[in-house]
Write a protein that binds this DNA or RNA. Structure first.
Lengths: 211, 211
DNA sequence: CAAAATATAGTTGAAATCAACTATATAAAA
DNA sequence: TTTTATATAGTTGATTTCAACTATATTTTG
């Protein structure tokens, strides 16, 4: 059983290097790379692969959107999500949308091979992170997970850009009181204590990118 | 002329994948990998390579420290620094400490090959980023670049952990007024406007790591 | 349609940050 | 040994954030 695998990562070097690693796995026959979610979807539309491996933090279309679309349209295609950070809420949301495996970028190559074989044979690959996410879902209300509105994301972005509530209000042509409310909602939804927490979450969730 | 190359990156997958890519370059004969700066130094102590490629953000010993030590003890070894973010100040500091090339992780494989050949043949590889850093150095006082004290880094870390000045003071057994002063110094030295700016810079400079 | 979610705007008061200073003891560097 | 850098502590006042509310128009969803 030789597998076809497509992968997406905006860091060309990483995508390319990862492809080389995967090509070395004995059960793999073909690997194609894309630099964002949109390109990956385009590849899948042309010809279905056995497995797709996608980064979470990407421009144009992020990993979560990729999971949603592929699991809906091509439920037989296995999906492995890669991220920089091991964010439990994110894992939980990805699982709800049908991801088959979840790895942080600090994993080693053998774990990736194990994960690929596991998702193909058993339909899933459970590591510590996914186990934590399952436990988490039992204790915390799922509704509190990251479901920021477009406006909230916009405000969060401007907070990360070091603007004050007043400045953001001026920029968006609304009262600073309104922005205060959005900020409160962000603190609550993201489980942050202050601006430091908001910035960290924004980066973790891929809403804000540094430099 | 066949080259020996050592590389260091704390993400096992990336290090491994990068090694595979470099092994494919025609002028390269040998590649060894390390998972942090300390391991890389150990490798170099045993046998000098032609080129070392090191990530900036690493535990145990970061890229800047690697550059300082290698360029001092083994000036004939060429050094290529990789980072996630294109921070001009950082490039400038790395150049002052003797780095030969500087690439962000969004580069493509062919640029890496070009950079390797260039540092070996011409002792340097100049891309847009290094050019910007040179221009930057002409306009801005070098002294204002990142030279945080240990105490300031400690405070910055705790700010990123969402603690208030009062809480940090209690933790470090000093007055919150003292922490206020450290914070002011941080804002000034890092060119940040507020907490959001401090957190971003802390992540960029590798002082703070998310999750 | 009725209910829920979203975006808007406000009040009030406490807590925290921002900015610009002075000042002192100690440690490190010239 | 001066000088400089660092860590410490303080004052003062303005600005901003934090937290918990009420309220309302609009949009989305069941």
């Amino acid at each position: 059983m030789k597998l076809t695998i497509y992968l997406a990562d905006d860091h060309a070097m990483f995508a390319n290097a990862l492809a080389l690693t995967i090509e070395g796995f004995k059960d793999v026959s073909k690997v194609k790379t894309a630099s964002n979610g949109k390109e990956l979807i385009d590849l899948v539309e042309k010809k279905k692969p056995d497995v797709v491996i996608t980064d979470f933090e990407m421009p144009v279309m992020d990993g979560m959107e990729v999971i949603k679309r592929i699991s809906k349209k091509y439920p037989e295609v296995k999906i492995i999500l890669l991220t920089m950070y091991n964010n439990v809420q994110l894992v939980r949301e990805a699982m709800d949308h049908g991801v088959h495996a979840f790895l942080t970028k600090s994993f080693d190559p053998s774990e990736l091979e194990t994960a690929i074989i596991s998702v193909v044979e058993k339909d899933f690959y459970h590591n510590d992170l996914m186990y934590k996410a399952l436990k988490y879902s039992a204790s915390v209300n799922i509704k509190t997970s990251t479901s920021l509105t477009d406006r909230e994301k916009e405000v969060l972005h401007l907070i990360c850009d070091e603007l004050t509530m007043k400045e953001i209000g001026d920029k968006l042509f609304v009262s600073d009181k309104t922005i205060q409310n959005h900020r409160q909602a962000l603190l609550r939804k993201l489980g942050a204590k202050n601006t430091a927490g908001l910035v960290k979450k924004a980066i973790e969730e891929g809403i804000y990118k540094i430099s």
